[in-house]
Amino acid sequence: MSRISEGPVARVLKHGYLWVMLALVFMPFYVMLVISFKDNAQFYNRPWVPTLPLHWENWSEAWNTVGVYIANSIFLAVTATLIALAAAILAAYVFGRYRVPFGQLFWLGLIILMLMPGVANLIPLFNLMRNLNLLNSLVGLAIVTAAGGQVFCLYVLRNFIEDMPKEFFECARIDGASHLQQVIHVVIPQCGGIISALAIMSFVGAWNSFILPLITIRDPELLPLAVGLYRLQGAYVKQWGPLMAAYFISAVPLVILFAFTMRFFIRGISEGAIKG
């Protein structure tokens, strides 16, 4: 589809701009990759260009350090995402399809929460988790993370379900589907796009969560990625090569995730944005 008649100059300018921007946003990859193969001597002499020999051992060393963080983060992110979405889909079905007594009151209460800065109640949350014995536990952290993402997921999903043709649900009801069956057979397949987008966002959110694990997780072997890397850069005399390799490795799980779900993600964001 040609939108605008354009001259060759405009063409070059547009593509040129985008490539320059891409070069800048891809710069971190280059930095990580190049430095990850250096020992400190190579790094101090020629930091910005590839040097020989390549120090592959940096990568195995890095893996030994961050492997456990990555495992922790995967556990955290998967658990939090599953809890957040399972709860949100059920509730969104109710709010998107029905007007139950007291529903509106509860809904308004939830929306106010969107404005609440997470920081405002960090200390009481910390105390609560201590009292519930959830400190220093990845499961506890996952539950709290899921609760934090709950309102956003619910808000987006409700808008989607509300806009679905109600005939789908009515037809299922006549066919004898229970509420749960309507969720499974009607909502989930048809909101697949937005659900995957939310899942990705929720996963990435948990993957990047920092403050909460920073204050709640004590054992080094339970640290999720962000806190682990934060401690790592502060703790040692810096070995830049392994450090950069560790940074690079910590991006790999998301690379895998995005490789499979990029399409949904882009589509989901676009659909979501249209709904506003």
Partner: peptide
């Protein structure tokens, strides 16, 4: 009709519990 539609309330329960416990309670306590 709440009696007939009670499953709806059950479906809201997980969200309600999560939000009440981990968002409202800390806010009130704060």
């Amino acid at each position: 009709q709440v009696k007939r539609y009670w499953p709806l309330y059950v479906m809201v329960l997980p969200t309600l519990a999560l939000v009440a416990l981990f968002m409202y309670w800390p806010a009130v306590s704060g």
